Simulated assay, not measured.
Amino acid sequence: MSAEAPVTAFMLVKTTPEWLALTVAERVHAFTTQVVPVIEARTHGVRSRFYDTEFYSARVTDVWVWEADDHEAYRLLIDALRETPFWDRYFDVVDLLVGTENGYARTYGVEPVATIAT
């Protein structure tokens, strides 16, 4: 039996006036003391990457990519985030796009199709 496929979530968020009123140092401090410890205490097998999009979109200022080992790890992540000021205080969650990479290939037993830049 194969292991469950990792879950990738593209979390589209918009900064709030409360977040923007903080200095950069205050933002880093808030994130590292109010958000990260909760995630680390309540989850397992979760990684993140952050992309700034405010130069291209007025609706979404950032895209946070969360990779979780499985659906349970993803669920724990969302539960943890909702208990921090991240959720609906510092950021409005505009949309969540959740999927598994190359799910079609696993479903149909074929090799994933991808492009390779040379």
Rank of each mutant, 00 (worst) to 15 (best):
A3C: 11
P6R: 06
P6K: 08
T8R: 08
T8Y: 08
M11W: 00
K14R: 15
T16F: 03
E18P: 02
E18R: 12
A21P: 03
A21Y: 05
T23N: 09
A25Q: 11
E26Y: 06
E26C: 07
R27G: 04
V28K: 12
F31N: 02
T32N: 15
Q34I: 03
V35N: 02
V35L: 08
V35P: 00
V36C: 03
V38P: 00
E40W: 04
R42S: 11
H44T: 09
G45H: 02
R47G: 11
S48K: 07
R49S: 12
F50Q: 11
E54H: 09
F55S: 07
F55G: 04
R59H: 13
R59S: 13
T61W: 00
V63M: 08
W64A: 06
E72D: 15
R75H: 15
L77A: 03
I78E: 04
D79Y: 04
L81G: 01
R82C: 11
W87N: 04
W87G: 03
D88T: 12
Y90A: 01
V93F: 06
V94P: 00
L97A: 13
G99D: 07
T100C: 10
E101G: 07
G103M: 07
G103A: 12
Y104H: 14
T107V: 12
Y108T: 15
V110N: 07
E111N: 12
A114Y: 14
T118R: 14
